[in-house]
Design a binder for these strands. Structure first.
Length: 518
RNA sequence: GGGCCCGUAGCUCAGCCCGGUAGAGCGGCGGGCUUUUAACCCGUAGGUCCCGGGUUCGAAUCCCGGCGGGCCCGCCA
């Protein structure tokens, strides 16, 4: 921003080309991808008579005196626009715009499709509209935007300039769409469950608290849709899912953010095995359709590793995997013995539940070595209050977790549908809360309405939750979950805006008569 | 909640240890150039060295406090 831009807007105003006044729309007839596929076959130097309209943001300007090349980017890629003196000369609008259009500006171009000597499909401009001005400089260069603070504060710049980030965001949409398609074909219906809940549940996490003024009532932001989706199974929606935003009031790190998106699906008359199969199909098929193959090259830290989503995925039993990694027996060990093992690995567990100790050991020594999709099965009873007892051994529940690239991506189980046991396990959670306090262990609150729903009869049901941000993070080779979330929160800052700098332009724009209405 | 690191031009960064006129590349601006791809060539301007305090003749540099950000550990996916 500065005085030269002020003079730019003055020149545009004088010529009646100020985009804030004249540019309301621009008919685009073709995008970069279409242009390249349709005209890629032209031979170098060939000119067509085909007239097209394209629009996008100017990234690079290469002026050669009598000819100027503009790299214009639309949502699908680059379009080279050529301004040639023999066409521009004598056209006062084109003369002015070819002087004023700058890197960052958004333009619309009408012209003929040509291929340059060097073989690039281009639009030879016959008319140009300035559609928006970039008042602030945009760093369109080799190093792009690196400052992590600016990347997150001005995320629109990061998404504009960092193709890995942009691809992850676009591909999340595509993956969601493919998952919806697969679920739809299987007869699942998608619903929205409440984000404002009187009792939070479905996970063990600290909730956000807020107030519904109209009811003078404290409510919690949903930490998971689980208990509501299962109420819908009770209601007879036997295949139901939600792509749900979940809120958890916990700390932020590379793999955690207080709001994140999960796909949770529940299927009546199904168990954990069915849900593992569903999870495999949902993820592997959507990845193949979006990335073109079951094998995806993941670029991170300068090297590329192949993630293989081909089915079937590896399955390991939780305690077996620990025993294998540790070369020590853990099955049937006492709490004290497990604590000793944890201690030898420099893991400090305050939580009194045996399962929690096992889980911590597992996360430390097994998880970091998991690369390709791997199901981990058979979890301890005491850390899974909503899961159903393992039919082979009541010490365990029929619960699985999916790990990819060292990250927990999904969690599912045969759902506990016994209201009597559900009441008991909620009671156990409350006992645990009294024993250690809320700070040392998150527990599941008593939810009698949920139990009442189970008392009306929930069929045997399987369920799974898939963390979509984490999935995209792993596949996209991005180091932080914040990279795949379009906007994350930053501390307040003092921002200087144009209206403060050029107050006289406020009066100008307020008094402008735009012209005849349409 | 605990620890470590960073903040200098629009962008990427050097300078900081060992105090002495604020630096580079890219970008910007002016000029030249009719087939370039991060165009090129010539010229030129550009700074609250995050903020506040201290030490000092003198602080981007040393010390203290604050703000902003990142990473790791603990907890949640």
């Amino acid at each position: 921003m500065g005085s030269e831009l002020k003079s730019k807007i003055r020149e545009l105003i004088k010529a009646n080309l100020d985009p804030y006044i004249v540019a309301y729309s621009f008919p685009v007839t073709i995008v970069s991808e279409g242009l390249k596929s349709k005209y890629g076959g032209l031979s170098p130097g060939e000119e067509t008579g085909d007239r097209v309209s394209v629009a996008g943001r100017v990234w690079h300007v290469r002026k050669h005196g009598g000819i100027t090349f503009l790299d214009v980017y639309d949502q699908t890629g680059k379009i080279q626009v050529i301004l040639r003196r023999d066409i521009v000369r004598g056209n006062s609008k084109l003369e002015l715009l070819s002087k004023l259009v700058d890197k960052g500006d958004i333009i619309g171009v009408r012209g003929r499709v040509v291929k340059t000597k060097t073989g690039e499909v281009s639009v030879l401009a016959e008319d140009v509209e300035l559609l928006a001005i970039a008042w602030r400089p945009i760093p369109f260069h080799e190093f792009g935007l690196k400052d992590p603070e600016q990347r997150y504060r001005e995320r629109y710049l990061d998404i504009m300039l960092n193709s890995k980030v942009r691809k992850a965001i676009v591909n999340l949409y595509k993956v969601e769409m493919e998952m919806r398609r697969i679920l739809d074909e299987k007869g699942f219906i998608e619903v929205h469950t409440p984000k404002l809940q009187p009792i939070y549940g479905g996970a063990l996490a600290k909730p956000f608290t807020t107030t519904i003024n109209a009811l003078e009532r404290t409510v919690y932001l949903s930490i998971a849709p689980e208990t509501y989706l299962k109420r819908l199974v009770v209601a007879g929606l036997s295949k139901v899912y939600e792509i749900a935003v979940c809120f958890r009031n916990e700390d932020i790190d590379a793999t955690h953010y207080p709001e994140f998106v999960q796909l949770e699906a529940y299927q009546a008359y199904a168990d954990w095995n069915d849900m593992m199969e569903l999870t495999e199909e949902l993820i592997s098929e959507s990845i193949r359709r979006v990335y073109g193959d079951y094998k995806v090259g993941v670029e991170a830290g300068g090297e590329t590793r192949v993630l293989d989503f081909s089915r079937p995925w590896k399955r390991i039993v939780l305690e077996d995997s620990i025993e294998e990694a540790l070369k020590t027996k853990v099955k049937g060990r006492s709490r004290e013995e497990l604590l000793e093992i944890a201690k030898s690995l420099e893991i400090d567990v305050k939580d009194p539940r045996k399962g929690k100790i096992l889980e911590k050991i597992f996360e430390r020594i097994v998880v970091p070595n998991i690369w390709n999709p791997t199901f981990v099965t058979l979890f301890p009873r005491d850390i899974s209050p909503l899961a159903r007892t393992y039919r082979g051994d009541p010490e365990y529940v029929e619960r699985f977790e999916l790990y990819i690239g060292g990250l927990e991506i999904a969690n599912g189980y045969s759902e506990l549908n016994n209201p009597i046991l559900q009441y008991y396990f909620f009671e156990e959670e409350e006992r645990l809360r009294r024993l250690v306090g809320q700070e040392e262990a998150e527990v599941h609150p008593m939810d009698k309405d949920y139990i009442r729903a189970l008392e009306y009869g929930m069929p045997p049901t399987g369920g799974v939750g898939i963390g979509l941000y984490r999935l995209m993070m792993v596949v996209g080779g991005l180091p932080s979950i914040k990279d795949v979330i379009p906007f994350t929160i930053t501390a307040p800052e003092n921002i200087k805006v144009l209206g403060e700098e050029f107050r006289e332009l406020i009066d100008h724009y307020l008094s402008v008569k735009p012209g005849p209405g349409v």
